[in-house]
Design a binder for these strands. Structure first.
Lengths: 329, 329
DNA sequence: ATGAGAAATACAAACGTTTGTATAATATTT
DNA sequence: AAATATTATACAAACGTTTGTATTTCTCAT
């Protein structure tokens, strides 16, 4: 494998000059620079990023930690991150935690070992607080949190405007004529779910509907739990639900059907996340689009700003209500 | 940041001994090893993977190149790869090509710069052959191809048994009683699609149905092209389709509905890929499951084998027909 | 022609490991 | 007790860059 030293020897220069030439430094005469670049190409030189990173003390690679990459939301957020990072000459190592605390710790340790330039993280459900991040990373590596953030951990965060998303969804159901609207609120007491619940409550309040705590179901937001909770909601007389997740909304639709209710005529629903299947179902499902790609882009931009030494602050990405058949009777 | 040299100085050993102790070498006395490990922990030592990789001449990181991570297939294949690689103490850098040749080249160059231990690649549609891989990587880094492989590029490959998948799908449609069965065959003349077409033809032949080339549509397999092709197929009298993709199958269902046909009573369909929406639709869509997680695992195992110097060979992963409502009248 | 200043390049150390070889310390054999 | 074998650790180079400083070479004004 050809090194800059080989090139230097072959041309009678020193490695330092070759290094600077290849880096495009103005400290080397244009003609020599060109000659060196040409020679490097001829000799089939490939820069060793390992050595360069070691010498520089930090890597040109960043780390992304997410619960799962096979969710619409996260894969698109990664897409946005990658796009912006690549544009700045940075790469990304991706780690999945599968919602497990120990895997999150493992990922952080590996990224620390690799002296990555920065870390983007969306927390695992199992992780209660951000103390492990402080412990492992400290402030040796800039960390940008997105979507699922640790409320106790300082630093820039990119989150959705969950309050307004849930507000719009609930309001749309009310306007469509549904009267007894419950909610599948999630069981992870993260900011995101709290905010969604608040948005739901505010929408009810603004439209003069009393809040009824018995119509709010705190459970995980899977298809199964959604089905079970919706069954209870229907038994309690609900004619609509705002669900903090799309899979639980799907379960709710199934529960409504099994209860002999027609969607959207007898029962309305709006989900959250706009998973691909939401628009492909029949009837199609209304959902709140989270704009994950944009969140990824924002997170990366905040990091790049921070890297340039500029002041950074957290960002809120607006959600977008996508009204489809399931919430329009 | 603490280094092994710091630990060595603090304890009166040399860096080499500390290095060996932390690596668990038997060349250092058990008691010293333990003492060093304890001290390292106390001092908050974090190994610098950059330095270690440089010295060793290769990285503990591998590279994964896929068209897009936000497809059911690829995100799960990555999941399988990661699971196996992590178990062997390896990490992965993921790159998306977005089906573009130039991005594939870029990814390969970056991975080469990083002297990754191995590369897993599923080719971009735009890439006609594997000459760029030979050119950039040569045999400096082991490459394992999966799913979308370059037929002209040697080395281990992990592919689906596309022939049998398509065969089973077509046969199921015949057995269900459909008579004039066309195919949405894809327009990318890769092995995968060719094999699917062959499987389709063989199933027809085995059931004594004549092959009619006019019922086979070579086009990309998007929802839109699927809709358009299915429209023609219906006009030509088809009562069923085997689609080489799920999105085109979805388009076909819409085309059938718009033509006043009921699915599956008047029109049957089986897709390929088993995207999440296939099971969530109404009627649910039959599809061939590609077992991407298993493909990822296999690819990683082949790589690990190769790394151990063992003989490796390509693998074929069976597909699984998931019969649902859309193909059963 | 000479000296100052600028431009171009050389020198050398450093980043933090790993690893082959050498040496010191201990154990074993005769 | 001396010679040998074994074990434990030290020494030093190397991986391929980057970068601060020193040196040489050139340019230009005096």
């Amino acid at each position: 494998m050809i090194t800059i030293t080989d090139i230097a020897h072959a041309m009678g220069y020193t490695p330092s000059t070759v290094s600077r030439a290849l880096a495009g430094s103005i400290r080397v005469k244009p003609e020599t620079r060109e000659a060196i670049v040409r020679k490097a190409y001829e000799m089939g030189y490939e820069r060793n990023a390992l050595a360069a990173n070691l010498r520089k003390g930090h890597s040109d690679t960043t780390g992304i930690i997410v619960p799962n990459i096979n969710r619409e939301f996260f894969s698109n957020a990664i897409g946005g991150l990658e796009f912006t990072l690549n544009g700045a000459g940075l790469n990304a190592m991706i780690f999945q935690t599968h919602e497990r605390y120990d895997m999150e710790v493992k990922a952080l340790e590996t990224l620390k070992e690799h002296r990555v330039a920065g870390i983007f993280i969306s927390k695992a459900l199992e992780s209660r607080d951000g103390s492990h991040i402080s412990r492992i990373i400290g402030n040796s590596i800039p960390v940008v949190q997105f979507d699922r953030v640790f409320s106790d951990l300082n630093g820039p965060k990119v989150v959705n405007d969950n309050f307004h998303g849930a507000y719009m969804a609930t309001r749309q159901l009310i306007i469509a004529g549904y009267r007894k609207i419950g909610s599948l609120a999630g069981n992870d007491f993260s900011e995101a779910y709290k905010e969604r619940l608040n948005g739901y409550r505010q929408a009810l309040a603004d439209e003069g509907i009393d809040y009824d705590g018995s119509l709010v179901f705190f459970d995980s937001i899977t298809r199964e739990t959604g089905y079970a909770s919706a069954k209870k909601a229907i038994a309690a007389g609900c004619d609509a639900l705002y669900s903090a997740g799309d899979f639980s909304a799907l379960g709710a639709i199934e529960a409504a059907r099994d209860a002999g209710l027609s969607v959207p005529k007898d029962f309305g629903i709006v989900g959250t996340g706009d998973e691909a299947f939401a628009s492909l179902m029949n009837p199609s499902m209304s959902s709140i689009f989270q704009n994950p790609y944009e969140m990824g882009r924002k997170a990366a931009e905040i990091f790049l700003k921070q890297q340039r030494g500029e002041q950074v602050e957290s960002a809120v990405v607006p959600m977008e209500l996508r009204v489809r058949e399931s919430s329009c009777r």
